[in-house]
Nucleic acid binder design. Structure first.
Length: 424
RNA sequence: GGAGAGAUGGCUGAGUGGUCGAAGGCGCUCGACUGGAAAUCGAGUAGGCGGGUAGCCCCUGUCUCGAGGGUUCAAAUCCCUCUCUCUCCGCCA
């Protein structure tokens, strides 16, 4: 959520920043509502002040044995006025609040200005793109050939965009989860969390999925519950409605969860394979920081995600998303894109974002600064560390052999029970 | 699912109609004491939204005691609904 005071004091700046995201917003209506709201607030507070003072007088008079009927009637009348005005105020504030909740975060000044994916800026590349002396297969053909991925039976169980992992495939999925968690916990200093996979709508509002993107999620029928679309939601909401001590910042959390996305496939992209699924696994990293540190922390978080790919020997590049391609809650985002030989292109495997105070404001996560000053909103960051399914796809395609087998990256061998190669 | 108890400030915990944004304690901040520290003593210490103002330096109004409604001149306190927590019973991986 944007700071309404910033909108009031500098609507042009906010509109300009939103325009960079491709959003034309006029704040005239908002500012008008606020003017009306403030006028109404002053009037109703005058009446409340009168009611408070007079009620106390009535109390004293009653104790003195009097029965001030006229005063009581007067206060009662004012009470009715207050109620009417309060209702108007609430409806105004509701409208203003609804508008604020639908506005995305402002891009940070360091974010490249652009309209679409095409304007994203490549920051760096890592690794050597593998060369094959045969025609590389797509991961779905490799997976079905090795009988470690079963799309047909998954369709029987659940429908399109689900996958059954079998044998070494299932093991590989589990190995990756453990490898990534161990790396982030043991080397990068994150605390491991195992959160619920279902959360309430307050959480979804806090991280920005609601109110705009409810259709992207699986909702539990008849309950105020959603399947988590990413562990970012439960992790970031851990401290919702809390006041943290600056001395305890920053918090580093990492968690494995399954992720559930209803929107996957709605645009007909990636209809084959395991790139875009209704359910996939992910290890996520979340940081809660003070305001001054979030930019640095984003660089470190991105490096932590990169190290996963480096250790797995998967070529990738880092892209700074341009203003037009930023997600709803993000002020700045680096995407990690892994090389997929069959596609012959880099595809997103991690997205690392600094959400500045945007989510903290929605979720009311604050901290008291060291100098005991005024409470501040925390900054929240999140990044995939990394998406498991896409990592499996990348391993299958990058490590495929001419005979249809797939080599296991050495760092995963212990997690695979010593297996070095997946063969038919 | 059935029965009961509860939800108050950063934490703990009093408060059953007005003098309560709220005792006491802990924690924290500042000061005294000390060579320094501990202990002790003293003072301060919620947040939101407005108004005054150049200004969150101050002054001031209002709201907030799980959430929402109601009763009343007046609600943390009484009534209703909901949410959550705990205990017992049932069921269960």
């Amino acid at each position: 959520m944007l700071d309404s005071k910033l909108i009031k004091s500098n609507p042009e700046l906010v509109a300009e920043k939103l325009k960079q995201r491709g959003l034309s917003t006029a704040f005239d209506e908002f500012l008008n509502m606020d003017t009306v709201r403030r006028r109404l607030l002053v009037e109703v507070e005058e009446r409340k002040s009168f009611r408070n003072r007079t009620s106390q007088e009535i109390g004293k008079m009653k104790k003195a044995g009097q029965e001030p009927i006229e005063l009581m009637t007067k206060v009662k009348e004012v009470g009715h006025e207050i109620k009417e005005m309060d209702e108007q105020l609430i409806s105004l504030e509701q409208k203003m609040g609804d508008m604020l909740l639908t506005l995305p975060n402002l891009p940070h000044d360091s974010v490249p200005v652009g309209e679409s994916e095409a304007d994203n800026v490549e920051m760096r590349r890592w690794g050597t793109i593998p060369e094959f002396n045969f025609e590389p297969l797509p991961h779905w053909d490799i997976g079905t050939g090795l009988d470690i991925l079963d799309f047909d039976r998954a369709a029987k169980l659940s429908g399109a965009r689900f996958t059954v992992y079998k044998g070494a495939g299932a093991r590989l999925e589990r190995a990756l989860v453990n490898f990534m968690l161990d790396l982030h916990v043991d080397k990068h200093g994150y605390q491991e969390i195992f959160p619920p996979f279902m959360v309430n709508s307050e959480c979804m509002l806090g991280t920005g999925q609601l109110p705009k993107f409810g259709g992207d999620m699986f909702k539990i029928e008849g309950r105020d519950m959603y399947m988590v679309p990413t562990a970012e939601v439960p992790l970031t909401n851990l401290f919702r409605e809390e006041i943290l001590s600056a001395a305890n910042l920053p918090f580093y959390f990492t968690a494995y969860t399954a992720c559930f996305r209803a929107e996957a496939g709605s645009h007909g992209r990636d209809t084959r394979g395991i790139i875009r699924q209704h359910q996939f696994n992910k290890v996520e990293m979340v940081k809660i920081t003070c305001q001054e540190e979030s930019l640095n922390e984003l660089e470190k978080l991105t490096n932590d995600a990169e190290e996963v790919l480096q250790l797995l020997g998967l070529p990738y590049r880092v892209v700074s998303l341009c203003t037009g391609d930023l997600g709803f809650s993000a002020a700045k985002t680096y995407d990690l894109e892994v090389w997929l030989p069959f596609f012959s292109e880099y595809r997103e495997i991690s997205s690392c974002s600094n959400c500045s105070d945007f989510q903290a404001r929605r979720a009311n996560i604050r901290y008291r600064p060291e100098n005991q000053g005024k409470l501040q909103y925390c900054h929240t960051l999140n990044g995939s560390g990394v998406a498991i399914g896409r990592t499996v796809a990348a391993i299958l395609e990058n490590y495929q052999q001419a005979d249809g087998s797939v080599l296991i990256p050495s760092v995963l061998v212990p997690y695979m029970g010593g297996m070095t190669q997946i063969e038919k």
